[in-house]
Design a protein around this nucleic acid. Structure first.
Lengths: 130, 130
DNA sequence: TCGAAATTAGGAATTATTCCTAATTTTAAG
DNA sequence: CTTAAAATTAGGAATAATTCCTAATTTCGA
């Protein structure tokens, strides 16, 4: 695994140009403009490879399909569990202390990759339609 | 919505008795022992209702189907992005300060429901098979 | 320049979840 | 108790999201 392919490069370009947490489907449509022949399975396969390589991050959604994020710089995510909106933000979590707690409580060290806040955004609170 | 049904009660009982973050499929099989006639769609529908009611929490997984957690008491989750293992732990995040930062950076308040750590567990680090 | 390994397009298959319908159950009012 | 409206159910069909399969093409190192 890991030969060059213009398809994979086009996908990474799309991610760099669209810092809006697109779904796989949205990535597919965006990349079609650069690579009109690309197939959806190629998009899915390369997204997974880019996630493994650590170039992009998979965002786990409460509702709807997964979303992806190009890691231009370290940041955290706050995700609304109702509308699915994703907000990027920066917060200096004390990872050392969290790691120490994890070791104490679950008996093992973890490499912390990211921290995500799940909640309800202001819009969903006010328009509290079910 | 919200009439009594023994099916919904059986599902909640299963969640209380199995604090192991089961998938919908696993919940279905567990609840079959109590309610042999129950259908899978009933399980899915009631899981969603229980999530809306705030009795159980949906855990957003990097890989594989969603998992669910009975909220016996407040805790956070650390999820391994490789093997999908979920570890419960408690950490006293400074939610007030995080909220303040959110307001400053994204321009709105959010009700914080939960905080999840994503990373790589020790086992997956050592057996670093792709 | 050549062959093995990797990648592709396209579609089939699979997985996870939601939707649909007629029958049953629950609930509250009389 | 009755009764009727509203909610819920079982079962299966439908949908959505993702992965898998295969033959053809591309990449790349010897």
């Amino acid at each position: 695994m890991n030969n060059y392919s213009k398809q994979r490069e086009a996908i990474l370009d799309v991610m760099k140009e669209n810092l809006v947490h697109p779904t796989a489907e949205e990535i597919y449509h965006l990349v079609l403009e650069k690579e009109p022949q690309i197939s959806k399975s190629t998009v899915y396969r390369n997204i997974n490879i880019l996630v493994e390589l650590g170039e992009i991050k998979k965002l786990n959604m409460t509702a709807g399909p997964d979303r992806y994020d190009y890691l231009y710089k370290e940041h955290s995510h706050a995700i609304c569990e109702k509308c699915g909106n994703i907000f990027d933000f920066y917060y200096d979590f004390n990872k050392d202390e969290i790691s120490k707690e994890l070791l104490k409580q679950i008996g093992q060290n973890m490499d912390i990759n990211s921290i995500t806040i799940y909640g309800i955004c202001e819009d969903c609170k006010s328009n509290n339609k079910k």
